[in-house]
Design a protein around this nucleic acid. Structure first.
Lengths: 120, 120
DNA sequence: CTGGATCCGTGAGGATACTG
DNA sequence: CAGTATCCTCACGGATCCAG
């Protein structure tokens, strides 16, 4: 590769931390993985799909991501209420990152020994 | 694209959530970005570089990631103690994902309008 | 069915002081 | 310099009830 990765002594790290905050929270990433790749899901679908999540948390995290412009909320004015969620365009652009995360999870090599030593 | 992204009704989502937990925590990702691309940093370097973090949190998050096999800890037995941290091989394999995250942060398009409506 | 509101416990995370 | 110990706070997240 031509360009080294880092972000070291020379990098501003500007705004990145702010962005990272959007992905924090117990369920954010999990939800994103369920909306991955342009999927459109109803509230109840997500609730059923995500094991262990409560309504409150689901709502809360969805709303935060909506406010952050990551997910879109579509309300159908019907007698049996219906709300669907999907990623916004920007949210879609997260897919490569999510995909990379998925691939990373698949690697999972040996458990590294802790407490390595070295002499100067 | 030939293969759709998802992870939808057909995907097990196996173990992914467990992996995601490794990246949770207020400072995990921030620290990773500072160890990005094979950088080796001392404890105090990280402490100074990461604005707002406390010693406790820095240690704690570093130790957790060490236990998870993401970062490596190198101790020099000297009178002025010296400890360095860097990514393990597996941790290094996270770089593409971190890089994608960085790129995503750069996009940051228009703020999506909240509360979109639709009729059935 | 969706999802808002409220009460509440737990624990992650912050501040500070101390030790090897 | 690196790490530990202690205390404390706040909001994350769970349960339950209520509303459109």
């Amino acid at each position: 590769m031509s360009k080294k990765w880092g972000f070291g002594a020379d990098t501003p790290a500007a705004g990145v931390e702010e962005i990272l905050k959007m992905l924090e929270g117990r369920w954010k990433l999990v939800i994103l993985f369920h909306l991955f790749g342009g999927q459109v899901k109803r509230f109840s679908e997500l609730e059923r799909a995500i094991d262990g999540i409560s309504q409150k948390m689901l709502i809360q995290q969805l709303r935060q991501m909506e406010a952050d412009g990551i997910v879109r909320r579509i309300v159908y004015h019907q007698v049996p209420p219906k709300v669907e969620y999907c990623l916004t365009d920007w949210g879609q652009s997260l897919c490569p990152a999510l995909d990379a995360l998925l691939k990373w999870a698949d690697l999972r090599p040996l458990p590294a020994p802790t407490g390595e030593m070295a002499d100067n």
